[in-house]
Design a protein around this nucleic acid. Structure first.
Lengths: 369, 369
DNA sequence: GTTCATGGATGAATCGATTCAATACAAATT
DNA sequence: AATTTGTATTGAATCGATTCATCCATGAAC
């Protein structure tokens, strides 16, 4: 009884589906195709094959005979079928996407890293969802929520707030992450970072090698690990070289701060004034440069400058800026590779910390006097 | 017979579901929660309510009594339930996302526009998927495919290749789009753009007003509508002012080209050399600036420069650069608003073309001599 | 005491793909 | 001729949420 009813209903459903198909073909032929697009069953009906075969054409085309495959492809084309990704990933249990959460999309450093990651993701037929925490713990959490809801396969993140615990929980539930531009403090994660201490040392050694005897460090806040490390590297190198290192601490790393510090230095007695500056990033360095230009200090003759990051504009400044260059794209690529390693779960996956050593790019701002 | 079998199978399924539920609670209580997360039915069971109620708590919390609502929320918390967005949007037929396709994520112009759009999207509880066509027609198509598969609610796009027809088709199937930084040539789309002709005119009038009598335009290729328009605006303004306008055409708008053109100008006789340059964008302008600095030409004394876009680095150059500023963030916001208008289909939606007039930001590079 | 209205709650049906056990069929082997 | 092997194909069950027709309980109105 109930059974009969079920059968009846089934027949009804089929009839409706068929109608819809004919209808949609009709529309396509004679007018503008519109409304909700065709679905897989429509394609199957038009190509006179089963839904399983259509799915195979989409996912394992080489397992389908030439005849049916081409019929299916023709039907797909005819109907303008576009597979519904929500349905795909609901059933298959796997989205084809990674989430990436950076501190500032407007910072070219991160967009470069993202491009590197995107390239690798593309090779794996995944897409990269790029999000911007904008150095805001709330947004950071919100985007992690989003990533979890979207069931991304993995996350690339430059953490801002306290998220490590959460990331561990996510990993335990099947969403691994890789820390970018941060050395993992635990062995719970892979990370890709840059040896800022070495970078700081390189910068300062370079200044000494071009003749500086009164170098200074400009940067802050020291709560940023990067700043701390770069300073420490520079301080150690200064000690080794037997020169003092003056410190100008700033509340942030923005251009404006650089200009302010520059103005400050410009007002010092020439013999008190540093003869070279190592700025914790290029923004600061450009600020210094602008200030010096405005105050009639010559770079590098009166004062040399080295920055950090080697952003495009370092080389594009009127006086091209010496800087410490990080392999940005490579960082992104490597991070994505590590992430895929963990996703594909080569069972013996061990978390590894990749540390790149940044390189000096010498330009006019530190030319030997 | 078959009917009986069906019933039996159903019972089996229920038993399995129950087992799984108990199992997952068990795991939570006594060990690390892991494996596939809890689902909505688990929450319903733990809170002793129906699945419909849980769904209501998630989507229409005010329609649920306080008692059950808090039980559900407690269960969600206890199980660490995260709603599966694929399932949500499959059933509801609507994703909560927009796609945005730009020509170059590394260009601060586009990241600013994107941030504006993102803010509006956030207000509408949507997320913005940012993709980079990188001025590659293939990638552009591929990302549009992706957007269609993901069933985004709408698309913000700065078209590169021939995509208008495709966008029309998408719109007819329920995915509208808004053109960004492009004036829609048809009335089929909304668009948000900037009046480049006016911008070009402004730039040239400014140069004349600070005393230029031999201005030049640098930029290309003229197949880019932007370049064409900026040049035309400048040329018209020059004609009106009764000064000639020299043209230096470039194959692209990159920094390096600016430097090359700058070197070229540096080699001209001082009385043949332009006394002011309008560069089609800031990258070119910075290239010119660097070249002039290297060749000992003083800016603005020997030659004034005005750029276009007012990127951050325009003001951060050693000699701060006068530029034509576009309301980038506003462009993104407005575009997203128009898109939501069309998505929410206020039935009388008419496509509108928003055109912002760019503004001159005068800085040192055009200071009156 | 009965009817009606209403806000809350329920749960089977549903969205559109993929999966996989079952089957059909051809070719190879015994 | 019978059996095995292997490949191509099928279609019902499934993923995890939302939807919505239905039901329930409570109180107001008659």
């Amino acid at each position: 009884m109930a059974c009969q009813q079920a059968n009846t209903r089934m027949a009804t459903v089929n009839a409706v589906t068929l109608m819809k198909r004919i209808d949609s073909i009709h529309q396509w032929r004679f007018s503008v195709p519109s409304g909700p697009g065709a679905k897989l069953t429509d394609v199957a009906a038009l190509a006179r094959v089963s839904v399983g075969t259509v799915s195979n054409v989409l996912n394992r085309p080489d397992q389908v005979s030439f005849d049916k495959r081409s019929r299916v492809l023709a039907a797909i084309d005819e109907l303008g079928f576009v597979r519904n990704e929500s349905a795909r990933s609901l059933r298959s249990g796997s989205t084809r996407s990674l989430g990436m959460l950076v501190l500032d999309v407007r910072n070219p450093f991160f967009t470069d890293v993202a491009m590197g990651a995107e390239n690798v993701a593309e090779d794996h037929k995944h897409s990269l969802i790029l999000a911007n925490s904008a150095e805001d713990a709330g947004r950071e959490q919100a985007y992690l929520d989003l990533f979890e809801q979207q069931r991304v396969q993995g996350v690339l993140i430059t953490p801002y707030g306290q998220v490590l615990q959460r990331l561990e929980r996510m990993r335990d539930r099947g969403i691994p992450s890789v820390l970018v531009d941060r050395l993992a403090s635990t062995d719970q994660f892979c990370s890709v970072s840059v040896d800022d201490v070495a970078g700081g040392a390189t910068a300062l050694e370079h200044l000494v090698s071009v003749g500086s005897v009164r170098p200074a460090f400009v940067g802050g806040p020291f709560t940023l690990q990067q700043v701390e490390d770069r300073y420490r590297g520079a301080a150690d190198a200064a000690a080794r070289a037997g020169v003092p290192l003056q410190l100008f601490e700033t509340p942030d790393l923005k251009f404006e701060r650089g200009r302010q510090v520059g103005d400050l230095m410009g007002n010092l007695q020439p013999d008190k004034r540093p003869d070279a500056v190592f700025a914790a990033n290029d923004q600061l360095a450009l600020g210094l440069l602008q200030s010096f230009a405005a105050n009639g200090l010559r770079v590098p003759e009166d004062i040399a400058i080295v920055g950090f990051d080697d952003i495009d504009f370092a080389s594009q400044s009127s006086i091209p800026l010496t800087s410490i260059s990080q392999p940005r794209q490579l960082i992104g690529e490597r991070a994505a590779q590590l992430l895929f390693d963990e996703i594909d779960d080569e069972p013996g996956h061990v978390h590894s910390q990749v540390v790149f050593t940044p390189e000096l790019v010498a330009r006019q701002s530190t030319r030997r006097r």
